[in-house]
């Protein structure tokens, strides 16, 4: 995958004035404020040809040194026509962990956003069916947050016991 065209970066910067970009080893990422993320992604899809959404994921910066925001949402965009890759990031903080859903733009965002909701608890406004995808429906916590312990809080062993005489 190659770096995106510099015109793409220009278009993004003129559209959302607060977007910043950086580059590391041929990987270009743009940071967009959370209230402008949907417009920025729609611009990239419709005007700049990023027709393939590879991944939506999230990073929890709770214990990270020099962190200013808690959650960093990452959208990895590809262009199948020009073979470019661009990573778009946005930061969200508690208590309003709501971001507009990009399912109207890319259908593949459906399950990816469900996974981010399941693991981090970030709600996606306008998602057709936002519910847990990997964990059971009755699970109450968000496990991939940094304040959730690795072994869990006892949900994994909260089941009835079958002995030889009961079954």
């Amino acid at each position: 995958m190659t770096k995106p065209d510099p015109a793409t970066i220009e278009a993004l910067k003129t559209n959302t004035a607060a977007a910043t970009t950086s580059e590391f080893r041929d990987q270009v990422r743009a940071v967009v404020p959370a209230d402008k993320i949907f417009d920025a992604l729609r611009l990239l899809k419709e005007n700049r040809g990023f027709d393939f959404l590879s991944d939506i994921t999230c990073v929890d910066y709770l214990h990270y040194r020099d962190a200013t925001d808690r959650f960093g949402l990452v959208y990895v965009l590809n262009s199948t026509v020009t073979n470019e890759r661009l990573i778009v990031r946005t930061f969200v903080n508690e208590p309003d962990l709501v971001v507009p859903s990009v399912t109207p733009l890319w259908e593949g965002a459906d399950w990816m956003e469900r996974e981010v909701w399941d693991m981090f608890g970030i709600r996606f406004d306008g998602h057709p069916d936002l519910r847990r995808i990997l964990l059971p429906e009755e699970f109450v916590a968000f496990p991939l947050r940094k304040d959730y312990p690795l072994q869990g809080r006892g949900e994994r062993h909260n089941f009835p016991v079958l002995t030889r005489d009961s079954a």
Binding site: P136, E137, E138, F139, V140, A141, Q151, G152, R153, G154, E155, R156, H157, N158, F159, P160
Partner: peptide
């Protein structure tokens, strides 16, 4: 277990 209210309460501390 989905309909058992004891299981999914968040006060359970044992693991």
């Amino acid at each position: 277990s989905a309909r058992n209210p004891v299981i999914w309460s968040s006060e359970v501390k044992s693991h």
